[in-house]
Design a protein around this nucleic acid. Structure first.
Lengths: 344, 344
DNA sequence: GTTAGCACTCTCCTTTATCGAGTGCTAAAA
DNA sequence: TTTTAGCACTCGATAAAGGAGAGTGCTAAC
């Protein structure tokens, strides 16, 4: 059976309608609302064909039909017209990145927030992954008699710092000396390459301050490494309540529980590392838990290095044209902003 | 009418039962489950009295009775036995604050998380309020040819920093000079006291680097001031789904929407500044939106200065004894931790 | 003052009936 | 051969009706 022009038109009509209404679409609806010049009976026959071909599904015998994941895939790849952002949306995004000096994590957080506001879906965003980034500069800065700030600047301009207690009577000179040692040892390495075995030489330089040495290493390996790494930012988690299919408490709950699975979300975002926008529809997702959802992601970068991923998640009945255009725009805007601010 | 010993016993039984089951409690239930040595008819009479006195309410004629806010207040003040934490809970809290060097905000975030895990309610926590805190030390630290780190240490040991772009060719000496000027001008002041009018003298010192001056001031006033100020951390937002009264989608939604009102939550937390644990029950809350919820808060401090507030929010049918003991314990543990780490 | 007994109320759950949207099939029309 | 009108049939959704059960308040006896 061939997917001729009329079948395509009908399919498109059904997808459009279902995306808007969330109700199974019947042949009469298509005949009336979309002017195809044929009767509902003809459309009925075509729909039957489309179902046989795997593009449509029937929730039950006496209901209309619903697009399958395969149909959405076709829609995304071939049928949909990519929508441009309207002025208001573009303006909103522009404003976000204008004139503001933010900590990198704040930027990502705000991006997620705006993303969810514009799309009305739930947004997820991955902060830059430290494991991919090398250490450019380490500096211990005294702030106080008791505390110093351990500052690490990375190759991508990302900065990480932690307050750290210093032993009594330790002077600036010693701090500088340590900074130099750390730089010698770690410059150009990634955080994950900081190897405990490597450190015996460094340890000696600390002489009687072994405790200080330990806490320094602790901070460098654990604090910078694990906890920050899997940070997933989210926005608009409760947006799903606006959608009719989540008026069911069990579904809503399932979704919200999913959103608490930070590890899972992290893997989803981390796995899409191809430059640009990517759409994963329902069963296309490798993760079992996601087979009822679609995810649209985009990467963001600093210069030509991909730093992380942002995305929106929603029902497979997603406004793909809208989502794709917003993600595309946003990914680029964020990259621009970062490059302008942190690039050299 | 007097609230005699038997009435109290009956009231206590009803409250206990309702807290556990979330079902209106009938006279027969009280007679059977709680051994009071009288028949259900007697209890029925007493319950009628208790309703007249305002301690009980009836959802409808043929239902059992439900404690009123007044009853909960009595319960919290007089009736409940304050429960001690069990070993597992105490251990969990202890572990949280052990051996970890965290950014202050991370500490608060983790505290909120643990709080929600232990209580099974939604937790909210207020980060230390910068407006209350004075500036101890400002330092511009060069990290790079293009960037410096603006570090501000506050009187409470809290540290704030932001990466800031520096003009080309600006050397360390000049940065130090600026740091000194900023210190001269702002040491001992709060962030809200940073007055733009004051700055004309400082501005001159920057000579041709007016743009740099502007961004510095921008960061000091806006970035440190507004955005961080109202930061409310939350944990376990979806815990309410475990409670039977939130199986109703409208209620669940109302609650989640409430949790998105960061400003409101901020005010609630900021308003409870009396040292120690505070319980607000239903209509006792000044905010209209909260009249169906109860909130248990505790303050945390550094030394003897109150820094912020943590709390849990749930239905008025809350396990107060549990919540109060956890909040009490947690507030103190957090204060201890902070004092040990940042106090001098 | 306490309690057994009982009529009465009201929600909740189940059953039954009805409605209507939508389908698939057939046979006639184009 | 394709399209269409007509029609019987299916099945979910909604409403109405009918208990069942929990709980109350009142009365009268203990």
């Amino acid at each position: 059976m061939k997917l001729d022009a009329r079948k395509l038109k009908i399919l498109q009509a059904i997808i459009n309608d279902y995306i808007i209404t969330a109700e199974p679409v019947g042949s009469r609806t298509v005949a009336k609302k979309y002017d195809l010049g044929v009767s509902s009976a003809t459309i009925r026959n075509e729909m039957s064909d489309l179902e046989e071909m795997g593009y449509l599904e029937q929730p039950h015998t006496s209901a209309g039909r619903v697009p399958s994941d395969k149909a959405y895939r076709l829609y995304v790849d071939k049928l949909m017209k990519v929508r441009r952002l309207n002025d208001q949306e573009a303006e909103y995004i522009k404003e976000l990145y204008q004139n503001k000096i933010m900590q990198l994590e704040q930027v990502i957080f705000q991006t997620a927030k705006v993303l969810s506001e514009i799309t009305n879906y739930t947004s997820i965003a991955l902060a830059p992954q430290l494991s991919k980034v090398t250490i450019r500069h380490i500096q211990l800065v005294p702030v106080d008699m008791d505390f110093a700030l351990l500052v690490v600047v990375t190759s991508s301009g990302i900065l990480k710092d932690t307050l750290i207690r210093i032993p009594e009577g330790m002077d600036n000179e010693f701090l500088n000396k340590i900074s130099n040692i750390l730089n010698d040892k770690f410059q150009g390495k990634t955080f994950s390459e900081i190897d405990l075995k490597d450190l015996s030489a460094v340890r000696e330089a600390f002489k009687e301050n072994q405790k200080f040495f330990n806490s320094l290493v602790d901070v460098l390996t654990s604090s910078f490494h694990v906890s920050q790494e899997k940070e997933v930012f989210m926005g608009g988690t409760t947006n799903i309540f606006k959608l009719p299919e989540y008026q069911d408490i069990l579904r809503a709950r399932a979704f919200l529980n999913l959103m608490e699975e930070k590890d899972l979300l992290y893997h989803i975002l981390a796995s899409s590392q191809n430059n640009g926008v990517k759409v994963s529809i329902g069963t296309e997702n490798t993760h079992e838990e996601l087979r009822d959802y679609s995810i649209v992601t985009a990467t963001y970068s600093l210069g030509d290095r991909i730093l992380g991923t942002i995305g929106v998640i929603g029902p497979t009945r997603m406004e793909y044209s809208r989502a794709v255009s917003v993600m595309d725009h946003m990914g680029k805007a964020l990259s621009n902003y970062l490059t302008k601010l942190y690039g050299k």
